[in-house]
Simulated assay, not measured.
Amino acid sequence: MNIQRKLRLFELLVSIGCKEIEVAFPSASQTEFDFVRYLIEQELIPDDVTIQVLKGAKRAIVHLYNATSVVFRRVVFGLDRLGTINLAVSAAKLFTELAAEQPDINWQFQYSPEIFTATELDFAQEICNAVLDVWNPHHSTKLDVQIHHYEERSRNGGSNADAIAYVEIAGDLFQGLLHGVGIHSNIVTASILAILSAVNRALLRVNTETQAEILKLYL
């Protein structure tokens, strides 16, 4: 899309209430870079809306990710588990240092272990925890660890088939990975039920104060 079409889409997302918008991938092309700069320089980003990071934004998201699967570690990176963790940790430290140079921006950090579904669960948790140790999140600093997994299936055939959705969530307010399942004739409803199922499991792991924090994040 060109800048004009991107702008129409951005304005639509803002109008329906989206608060975190992945407007572009600035390093991917000149068009992407120019569009994000246009939004910033023309002051088109509402104060309560967060976009992907470029200098000058009031609220910015920095998303860090690296592949963590066995094949990528061995074939692409040529690294073992520790080397892959060090790769993520060094990038997280760099993000922290660069963000500190621009204290006027409200920063939000995100981390994703890419190709999570082909990564050993214990290693996915280990590398996420290593990044968390660098960023040291607390309740006044929102941190998204996006290691979520989603799948949907049909339980039976025909026009009256039910949908079943599986979801996996993780968060800094509770330990470990949590799963949820939802079943409904409507796949969207099944997905929502799966998320609620996982959140309910999260509530069982935490105290009352933290329960309120989880509900604000996921509901």
Rank of each mutant, 00 (worst) to 15 (best):
S69I: 00
P46H: 06
S159I: 11
R5S: 15
K216M: 04
A92E: 07
S197R: 00
I61F: 11
T210W: 07
T84L: 03
S191F: 02
A198D: 01
D48R: 04
T31F: 10
Y111L: 01
H179Q: 13
A194F: 01
W107A: 03
I169H: 01
G157S: 15
L143Q: 10
A28M: 08
L13P: 02
N136I: 04
L203Q: 02
R155T: 13
Q146L: 10
Y65G: 10
A198K: 06
N129R: 09
L87Y: 12
G180I: 02
V134A: 01
D34G: 05
P137I: 06
L132A: 13
R205V: 07
V134E: 00
Y218Q: 11
I105P: 01
A163C: 15
V89S: 08
F116T: 06
G78A: 07
R73C: 04
A161E: 00
Y65E: 07
Y65P: 01
G17D: 04
I164E: 15
T117I: 10
Y38P: 00
F35L: 03
E32G: 08
Q108T: 13
E22N: 04
Q110D: 09
T208Y: 11
H63R: 12
G158I: 06
S154W: 12
D172S: 08
V14A: 05
T189M: 03
F123S: 03
S191E: 09
E168I: 01
D144M: 06
S29N: 11
P137E: 04
F95D: 04
V89K: 09
V14Y: 05
N129S: 09
F174M: 08
K19H: 10
D122S: 15
F116P: 01
A212E: 13
F174Q: 01
Y65S: 11
A194S: 08
L178R: 03
D172Q: 10
I21M: 08
Y218R: 10
N106L: 10
I147Y: 06
D144L: 09
F33W: 14
A202D: 02
L143Y: 15
E97C: 04
Q146I: 09
A198V: 03
L98N: 07
N207F: 06
Y65L: 13
P103M: 05
S140K: 12
L12G: 09
N156F: 12
R8T: 11
H139S: 12
T208P: 03
S159C: 09
A118R: 14
E22S: 03
F35V: 01
G157K: 14
Q52N: 15
R81A: 00
A118Y: 09
K58E: 12
D47V: 04
N136C: 12
I21D: 03
